[in-house]
């Protein structure tokens, strides 16, 4: 299992386009991927579910924990981390 804690810097948080990209990226991997908003004391939810990711209410500057488990766990974690660190491809 791989795990990382990352701060979401995007101005709308995990909503709209960033939320879509996050879920689409997660869906590319076979591993089980869970995500949790530690800034809002939430529970872990399925990172491949757009609805559940929205229920986390991740706003700008919130910190999230991502857990991946499965054959491509490391690759999945790296992909999601780089997506968030690149601010979802926006400068």
């Amino acid at each position: 299992m791989a795990e990382a804690t990352i701060q979401v810097k995007h101005k709308v948080g995990l909503h709209a386009r960033p939320a879509s990209l996050f879920v689409q990226t997660a869906a590319k991997f076979s591993s089980a991927i869970k995500v949790k908003n530690i800034s809002a004391n939430g529970n872990f939810v399925d990172a491949k579910s757009i609805i559940m990711v929205l229920t986390l209410g991740v706003m700008k500057d919130h910190e999230i924990v991502i857990q991946t488990e499965g054959a491509d766990a490391d690759a999945a974690l790296a992909a999601l981390k780089s997506l968030i660190e690149s601010n979802f491809g926006e400068s």
Binding site: S20, D46, K48, S49, I50, I51, M52
Partner: peptide, 13 residues
Amino acid sequence: FEAHREMLNDPAL
């Protein structure tokens, strides 16, 4: 409607 399509495919649903 793209967002609706995503929700339609949602594994939680």
